[in-house]
Design a protein around this nucleic acid. Structure first.
Lengths: 217, 217, 217, 217
DNA sequence: GATGAATGAGGCTTCATTCAT
DNA sequence: GATGAATGAAGCCTCATTCAT
């Protein structure tokens, strides 16, 4: 029985700090979130953060990895035993549902992730690679099975699908943040954008595209 | 002869500061780019920045608006006189080419834009709205003409397409930034990702989707 | 005939700049009044200020000297031919009236004068010395004439009287600046403090003091 | 045992910072005293100031309130059990003695207080209100007892007396600050102005006024 | 004389991180 | 392990003053 380190990911306080960080960063953004604010929300002292994380940047990385790990686990479970278009659709619907269930985590993932060059340029992001590999694997298999068109490289297709998902997540998150309407047309209703229902459109675009009469293509 | 305000957008120094800001921010990120670094790159004193922009945030907003304005102008010219799928394809290819021509501007647009809550939550972003309206307009017209499937709302379709474009831009920009390969798979070749050639795949996904045998849908 | 220097006190622009400085400094205070704000109010360019004044500090000194010079001239005229208590009362009433007639100048004189150590510690202030000498002269003469008690040195008496005048000026100026009431008792009326009528109380205090039954002293 | 907040007014460092601020501001003036100079004098880091005070302005306010609180406490003790002219005289003599005992604090109170609009226009200054109320209370009681003339409103009389005290404090403080003489009259002796002895003159002016033969009034 | 764009020193304040308790 | 007071580097911005036009 390996004894877990008291300050490791297994500890309750480690998770509590990450939870607090998600909330605070979702509200104020990474660079505008002092470590002290995260500590206060987590109910610990400022210095305690540094017993669990080497730096503020490491905290954000851990946060991102935990979230992607959760997503990957759920997605793999959702597509277990499925193949081809069925698996692809299951993947998309599951992902959208996961975004929907945790708005704060979605906000951090979508808005704050691209931020620091620390992250996108120097950080390798193995969980995100795993995410793309899972999605690309579904596509590659379906292409080999002759169910999907093989002219687009699977990893490119995977990235395009992620782009669609991420952009709609952004639109959804921002629509929640603002009292909506955008200020332009004072009379218009908020028009709550339902991201779960939007999954239909994503699936439609990804599978059959926008063109009606395929013969004319 | 219209007299332009000496510190207005028409002045040479105004443009020089924005150009310097694009370069510096592309390299270091917005929050890690001191105003003094931008000033130095532009060859002006720190205080001079504030003769042209009210604050560091306003500088970033101006930078983004200038770029989106350029993109919108070029895109509108590219689709002039075109309709339906032809217009849609022209839009996509033009956009990708524009991204390709100015890597630093693309990096800022793609990575730094989502950053500050100032931007995504409080800033209305009229040029981006215009961008989406143009793209949505193409789709709506083609739907009414019976050329595109009408079941997806045009503004949602526009956002999904933008998501694809933005995500591939991000992948491209990061592939350029890193000595490539990312360190994950030691043996793999850099494999220069050519975003212009990727336009084919984007067009394919958007128009006909991934599924081969549509009848089985 | 001496030709007046074009940027000297005789020039119209010199006076215009001082007038603007009084207004701006009365509103914002000396240290919070940028030279550029004074220039704008005066309708001149920033650099023009420096054709007329060596520095911002010199501008404030000039402003103060001009005002004290005006006051001294008016006060001397008011007491011309008068002596003793009559002169003292005329002095006081004239001074209060002058304060009342130019609120902005009074505000600067009263609030901003004590500010900079530049002023009170290193600046000799000849016009203020003249002011005290005039008032002290009235008192000294009246003491010699046996009309006023001689036990208090005239220059001390003069300073005490100035203290009374200055403090009431301050109270008056602040009562004008705030919508009044002080925020403490929401229901109380503004109670416009009339400084001209307050002259009666000043004269009373200075001449006969507060004590009713002098025999008991 | 009541636990005091470690950064509250009760802490030793809080008082040390205020003491340092009094010294530095007395020497250089508020606006010419960088926070860093106060920190250095107090023997703390710049940032530490902000653990104890929200801003530089708040520091000055706290400084003023602490001093006025001390003065009010001492004055109330000095007049305890006294009434009428006796109380009035005790009040004046005590105040003058307090000024005399702490020259630096007196300098800040007298010279720097009127400064920022923050102070005189937006700040309500409860301790100063208390000061005036105490003094006004003495006068009002004596008026009702028939000992003082009732024609001047007590709060106006209180302000006039404060004006006298404040002006003499200013004269005294400036006489100490300069190598005296001021450079104006090269031959004159420094002539140390003793503010404690000046109390006699203040009392004389306030009680019986300047006029010798009251019958001629 | 007049202009106002440009300068750059310097101020206030924030905040990641440390360390004595 | 936990705390939180203390640090001090660094950032954004202001503004008195200059000088080429």
């Amino acid at each position: 029985m390996a004894a877990v380190s008291a300050t490791g990911p297994g500890s309750e306080k480690y998770q509590r700090i990450l939870d607090a960080a998600v909330d605070v960063i979702a509200e104020r953004g990474y660079f505008s979130s002092p470590v002290s604010a995260i500590a206060k929300r987590a109910g610990v002292a400022d210095g305690t953060i540094y017993l669990y994380f080497k730096s503020k940047d490491e905290l954000l990385i851990s946060l991102f990895e935990r979230r992607m790990h959760q997503l990957n686990a759920a997605l793999k479970a959702a597509i277990a035993g499925k193949h081809g278009r069925v698996a692809l659709e299951a993947f998309i619907r599951c992902y959208v549902q996961l975004l929907h269930d945790e708005p704060a985590a979605t906000e951090v993932l979508t808005i704050e992730l691209r931020q620091s060059s620390k992250f996108m340029k120097e950080y390798d992001n193995p969980e995100f690679v795993d995410f793309l590999r899972t999605l690309g694997g579904i596509i590659a298999a379906a292409q080999e099975a002759g169910e999907l068109d093989g002219s687009t490289p699977p990893h490119i297709a995977a990235r395009m699908i992620f782009g669609i998902l991420d952009e709609l997540a952004l639109a959804w998150v921002l629509a929640r943040a603002r009292p909506t309407n955008g200020g332009a047309t004072p009379g218009s209703r908020p028009k709550k954008f339902d991201i779960v229902r939007a999954a239909d459109w994503i699936v439609a675009l990804v599978t059959t595209g926008l063109v009606l009469d395929k013969e004319s293509a």
